[in-house]
Write a protein that binds this DNA or RNA. Structure first.
Lengths: 193, 193
DNA sequence: GGGTGCATGTAATGGGTTACATGATTCT
DNA sequence: AGAATCATGTAACCCATTACATGCACCC
């Protein structure tokens, strides 16, 4: 048997320990809270929920509201909790790095410095927005649930993201300064030529 | 027609601006230099080189050494350079986050604190090794080629990795302290119970 | 003789996103 | 009337890793 490398199903299982949710809710929760460390699309969520239900790791209840479309709410079973705990104990496999922005900067000598500057500026803008979101999440989602047993772990995870974004922004500043110096030098050389 | 979102081919094109290389060389170079920001397996490299050659973006030369197996050395063409420059100008698409270690920490309340501690320690160990590698790369690959037009960009990219690893290590320290405190508290509660 | 490194490639498999299909309700 | 949001799901496609196949040279 081949080892399953995917953690999509386990991520869903984990989220369902917080509270029972529908596929739609799961997507919403991911976007709002763990979007920066984990992503999951509907095309993964729905089939996985079906499989989890078939394996008895989650239980599906159909919430029929008159007029409205049926909602399928899933809750984790004891068996599901056990499976989750097993997976949690396994060492995490490291991410495969695929940072397109860095790669483009790496080949920056092939294009005008302005191109690289634009890449770094765009990235800084995005990361500034993400940092703001983290701060909001910490205030609104975590500080609100001080007594919740999950809260300390949520805070640690968010802190990771915050620190990372802050250092990226520092790097961006440094790098932009360097790139602008390079651009000036190049313009000077161009005029002299 | 559907737009190709993959940047694998362009990454190879970029590497071939440094010098002509074989598929094997490319893999080796990736591992040694840009492995932390980009990864590419043989299963991607060889088919992509074939396609690039068919499109006239690279040129293949067979290097037949007597006795030894043939080496296929690829060099980038002017057309290839033009294509690379086009791609470099395009905004980079952000990474899809999939940090399994963070995800597991996020669900840390479901398991003993020791499990989370082990995750963070393992990660710190790995990142310490990567940081060392970055420092080595900076010394051995970049400082050696001061006058190379690519050098400033290489340095910026490596610096990104260094800063990131350093901040992760700082986070790991902080987090381990927090986790150990949690573990102690939990043991205390367990004894009282 | 067997392991390791150089070297090229393909096939199987799996993982994941995007686009599509459907449809009700609510807001503008 | 039409856009946005809630809501569920499937199919097509693409991307990427892994395992496998092959084979020479060199060293122990």
């Amino acid at each position: 048997m081949r080892q399953r490398t995917s953690s999509s199903a386990q991520a869903l299982l984990g989220l369902l320990t917080i509270e029972p949710m529908s596929g739609y809710d799961l997507r919403q929760t991911i976007e709002a809270s763990i979007g920066h460390m984990w992503n999951e699309s509907y095309g993964q969520i729905y089939p996985n929920l079906r499989r989890l239900a078939a394996a008895g790791l989650v239980q599906r209840k159909t919430d029929a509201k008159k007029g409205k479309r049926d909602r399928h709410v899933y809750s984790i079973t004891r068996k599901g909790r056990a499976r989750l705990a097993e997976w949690l104990a396994l060492p995490a496999q490291p991410e495969v790095p695929r940072n397109e922005m860095l790669l483009k900067l790496f080949f920056g000598a092939q294009v005008a410095p302005e191109v690289s500057i634009a890449h770094v500026e765009r990235m800084a803008e995005q990361h500034r927005a993400v940092l703001d979101k983290f701060k909001r999440v910490e205030r609104e989602e975590i500080d609100q649930h001080q007594q919740h047993p999950d809260a300390p772990f949520w805070r640690m995870a968010v802190r990771y993201g915050q620190m990372e974004m802050e250092i990226h922004l520092r790097w961006a500043e440094e790098t932009l300064a360097g790139l602008r110096k390079l651009a000036k030098k190049k313009r000077g050389a161009g005029l002299r030529a």
